[in-house]
Simulated scan of single mutants.
Amino acid sequence: MMANLFSSFDPSTFPAMSLNWVSSMIIFMMMPSLFWMIPSRWTMSWIILTSTLHKEFKILIKSKKFNGMTMMLLTLFIIIMINNFMGLFPYIFTSSSHMSFTLTLSLPLWLSFMIFGWINNTTHMLAHLVPQGAPSILLPFLVIVESISNIIRPGTLAIRLTANMIAGHLLLTLMGNSGSSLSTMMLSILVMSQILLLMLESAVAIIQAYVFSVLTTLYSSES
């Protein structure tokens, strides 16, 4: 029995350390086998996925000097997607529902983009603070607004991913807790509803990883 509704997101298992975070690395132990096994449908589908995302990130980056950066963004997408999917399995800790995980991904990337942009493209970065065609009287106010919106970017990236993961899992938990008091007919409807919701959560796991990676790519293209 859970102590409260949010206890499924509690990372504490032992007083000294938490082994729940090991779930984030379980899948990576199986991935290297793809490189020396005979190509299968799973391998070919994985290659198609990575090639498609590589082409899309390449278009978003625009600059030919940073084409190799698509590999880093592709890795970011895979890490987030796998951790989102792992959280859908029973008794596996949902690491992507914690700000300590999502903020660790977004903050260093944003900081590196900002440091690189302000050192190498200072004029370009200053131009982003003033929207084109804005009235002169509003320029001081617009600079403040653009600066604040730029500063909160890593936070919005992290909160978006965390909130979406928590919301789906809480809904599944609430529906599951009400099953013991339902009749057979209502229980079958509940099971079907949970299956449909689980399919939706599987789509959300991919979409949120894609959104996180695309927004990171767009932020990098500005610097």
Rank of each mutant, 00 (worst) to 15 (best):
G179N: 13
G176Q: 07
P131C: 13
I79D: 07
M44K: 14
L142Y: 05
V214I: 14
R41G: 15
M125E: 10
N84D: 01
G87F: 12
S188P: 01
F9Q: 02
G117N: 04
F85C: 05
V204N: 09
G179P: 00
G133M: 08
I82K: 14
L111R: 06
L218Y: 09
P11C: 01
I61K: 06
P32V: 00
F212L: 03
A134F: 04
L139T: 15
I206R: 00
I80P: 00
F89H: 00
H98R: 10
S112L: 12
M175F: 14
G68T: 04
S97L: 01
F6E: 03
L107D: 02
P39N: 05
L172C: 06
Y210D: 00
S220E: 10
A127R: 14
S97A: 15
V130L: 07
V143C: 13
S221A: 12
H169G: 11
P11H: 02
H98M: 11
I119N: 06
A3T: 12
N150V: 04
N121E: 11
H169T: 11
M165P: 03
T52H: 03
A3M: 09
F9S: 00
P108K: 01
P131W: 13
T52N: 08
M125V: 14
V143T: 10
I26V: 15
L197G: 08
I151V: 12
L34C: 07
M30Q: 12
F113W: 07
S193R: 00
R160W: 13
E201C: 08
L109K: 05
N164H: 14
T52D: 03
S213M: 02
H128E: 11
T173V: 06
